[in-house]
Nucleic acid binder design. Structure first.
Lengths: 340, 340
DNA sequence: TTGTACGCGTTATCAG
DNA sequence: CTGATAACGCGTACAA
């Protein structure tokens, strides 16, 4: 019981291979008699013919595969996004290949190469630090791609970003307005632009509000040792005489780790310390206090990414496009002002 | 700047394409002179030759692609599992294709067909209700697959399961031993065997301990309306005179939804009602009381699934294998006995 | 409508 | 025994 090929269909229908191909691809410009069409369709049906995508790809140079590179598919931010991308990709006739880079430039490059070797039609990429050369290579190879979540300085590429600087300002402003004066920012040690913007938005807003910035204003965390750095960092800061009255975590993982730590340290939220976080995750829902957090437009990011990529795949020489989508601030009890 | 093909390498090295193929695939049985080997390797290197996987697949009938069908990649249980499977698959030289079925038999079939059309070498599948015919078709097509998480009655297939019945007994026994006498089970309305076993393990343990089973002992939830069903279900049960003193949730999503509801209803855990849950998720960590939960051996499930599948792909006529892995009970504060 | 070259490796076969 | 030739896998699309 071997695979049914187009040849078998042609034989059964009593027509040529070419006719079968035309009929099955609806390329009936050259008016093929209705009779032939019916014969072919019936034969294909009866034999349960399934075209061989591999042969098709070999000839057409298209695979209808989209590769998605995320930092870690186990991170809810990326798995939620992946799900949205999967659905949109399927809708447009693509199959999704997913890979996790672990924020590691070598793994990242290996993934990109793997996707390139598989001749994915295009890539949706959350780039990691120091992946510029890799992306440049991709551009040289003319493989269409769209950056999401992050972008890199020194790379001119299509991208979808959110208003990181702006929303970070908004969060900070909200905290300031609620009367918090010593706000701690917890951020990653990183050179990723989108994360630096979050920090910058924070700092600029403090300054704008004439709050002086001291050296412990920002706690930097190594992404490879989150729990540990949070533990020692917060321990040190909490034992200080000048404890912060609010903490702003710039990612979901930092927030989850930080909230665990604060709880374990017996800090009451928001009475003792207020908390604001980035991203949205199931975990926030089980925290006893409803959180103030930055809600990213995941659906829009995912669908836009796929649609942009699809357009790039089908159109040569499209002008670069950098879409900025807007995250919104969701206000919860965790930043309820002390003086209200 | 078009793709470099094997022909280009042969030309540059001054040998035949056959020799290039042999050298690059390390098929040097027929002792090819070292000189030729070096020339080929150098030419390939200089031209930066990348073999065309599509052409290779067309000939060899192997794609080195594994398809993974989960209920929803956005569910942390599946995304964590997917990550493990991804890593193991890569280690064995496969690329992972992921699809979400939404527990929907039609989507499920569409995914399976898509993967079959892409000629995945094998599939790792979390089957949905009423997908028997689809799996039988797969067997007829001789596409190797391994079932995970669930299995279906009426299907003889390789599978990896956990000790659902047993661990459910263990959880129930733990609750009984802690002195709880009116335990509510929250489970899905379903015919999926692995979930029924969880319920059965629960019921049998009650019986064994001479606890009478009343009609509200099990709250059945529609998977498509979890929050809603949990809300109304728990409302009704909590307003009863005979309130349960413990609740056992049989999945992570049920637990998260249920814990939200219990908290909102002002139920104190475990003083008023104890809670045990299934699966492990980040969300549990932010719940103010450390939870008692069933920890599935995700790593073992993922790696075993890939290894079994790999073996099936490479060996015809392997005897069926049903691996049972053991989940463990993790005991937290949420089931701390009242009389201690 | 149809014959057929082509996309690109793999591997059986055969000549040197 | 080395290594080149060519059939093959299967659709696509141009030329006839």
């Amino acid at each position: 019981m071997k695979r049914i090929s187009i040849k078998d269909v042609a034989l059964k229908a009593g027509v040529s291979i070419a006719s079968v191909s035309y009929v099955l691809n609806n390329k009936i410009d050259s008016r093929i008699p209705k009779e032939t069409i019916d014969k072919v369709k019936q034969a294909a049906e009866e034999l349960n013919y399934r075209p061989n995508n591999i042969a098709k790809s070999l000839k057409t140079q298209r695979t209808h595969i989209i590769g998605l590179v995320v930092a870690d598919i186990a991170n809810p931010y990326f798995s939620q996004l992946a799900r949205i991308i999967e659905d949109e990709a399927n809708k447009l006739g693509y199959t999704l290949l997913i890979g996790s880079s672990d924020e590691n430039a070598e793994k990242f490059e290996a993934l990109i190469n793997m996707f390139a070797d598989r001749q994915a039609d295009g890539l949706i990429i959350a780039p990691v630090e120091n992946s510029q050369k890799c992306l440049l290579k991709l551009q040289k190879q003319k493989i269409p791609f769209v950056l999401i979540d992050r972008y890199l300085s020194g790379i001119e590429a299509d991208s979808i970003q959110i208003n990181n600087y702006n929303i970070s300002q908004k969060v900070t402003e909200h905290l300031v307005n609620e009367g918090y004066k010593n706000i701690l920012l917890v951020a990653y040690k990183t050179e990723l632009q989108h994360l630096l913007q979050r920090t910058q938005g924070f700092l600029d807003t403090l300054e704008k509000n004439h709050l002086q910035i001291h050296k412990n204003q920002v706690l930097l965390i190594d992404k490879d040792a989150i729990d540990q750095d949070i533990n020692t960092g917060l321990d040190s800061i909490l034992s200080n005489t000048e404890k912060p009255d609010a903490v702003f975590f710039t990612s979901n993982k930092l927030a989850v780790s930080g909230l665990k730590k604060l709880t374990k340290s017996g800090v009451s939220i928001p009475q003792e310390i207020a908390v604001a976080a980035f991203d949205e995750t199931e975990a926030y829902e089980l925290f006893p206090v409803s959180l103030t957090y930055v809600k990213q437009p995941l659906s829009a990011i995912g669908t836009t990414a796929v649609q942009m990529l699809d357009k790039k795949i089908n159109t040569k020489l499209l002008p670069l496009q950098n879409v900025i989508l807007h995250a919104e601030l969701h206000i919860g009890e965790s930043t309820k002002s002390k003086h209200n």
